[in-house]
């Protein structure tokens, strides 16, 4: 768990967001809240970063884009870690209940950990591949952060939905 948290948060280091004034995760929250049932929450991913690029001076520069995307990555990363922690607590409780009644059912918490580890490897390899489209070009920076942001958001939404399953 701690390894995953550290690993996950490590992605976004390298740029602090102090100069970014236009970032506000409320934009994403508002988008998610306004969705109808037949819409996918995925359509809200990137909304805060885009707003940030539009409202920050130099927001559309390579550096500006990276910073804005990185801010939203941090937002989703925090949500992912929170959702993961919640699901892990629930799954551990179920494991204990099952073992208390003498069940030999496979551990849900261990399966969760294996899933999250595999997801991290998948995220990193996929974003490395995305970067390869850019060669050494300057677009590779924002493209890689964007990839991490989208994938992290999707996994956060997946685990948040899973947290509802009792």
């Amino acid at each position: 768990m701690w390894m995953i948290l550290a690993f996950s948060a490590g992605v976004a280091t390298g740029s602090s967001g102090s100069e970014v004034v236009g970032f506000d995760p409320v934009i994403t929250g508002r988008c998610l809240a306004a969705m109808s049932e037949d819409q996918s929450p995925r359509s809200c991913i990137g909304a805060s970063a885009e707003h940030c690029m539009e409202t920050t001076e130099g927001g559309w520069s390579t550096r500006g884009m990276s910073k804005c995307l990185d801010q939203e990555l941090q937002y989703w990363d925090a949500r992912l870690n929170a959702a993961y922690g919640k699901v892990r607590t629930m799954r551990k409780a179920t494991d204990k209940e099952m073992s208390d009644i003498g069940s030999s059912a496979p551990s849900q918490a261990e399966a969760l950990l294996a899933m999250q580890r595999a997801w991290i490897a998948y995220r990193d390899a996929t974003c490395d591949y995305e970067r390869s489209h850019w060669g050494g070009g300057s677009g590779g920076g924002p493209a890689t952060v964007s990839c991490h942001m989208y994938m992290t958001a999707e996994q956060a939404l997946f685990l948040e939905a899973d947290a509802i399953v009792e």
């Binding site: 059912a105 496979p106 551990s107 849900q108 399966a111 969760l112 294996a114 899933m115 580890r117 595999a118 997801w119 490897a121 998948y122 990193d124 390899a125 996929t126 490395d128 591949y129 970067r131 390869s132 489209h133 060669g135 399953v165």
Partner: peptide, 28 residues
């Protein structure tokens, strides 16, 4: 840029991700 290697690694990691994700679902 070895895009071939990067793609193969990404696809391999995706297979493992699918396996482990659905194995987790299976426990639920």
């Amino acid at each position: 840029r070895d895009q071939t290697g990067a793609l193969m690694a990404a696809q391999d990691s995706w297979h493992q991700y699918r396996t482990n994700t659905c194995a987790f679902e299976q426990t639920l």
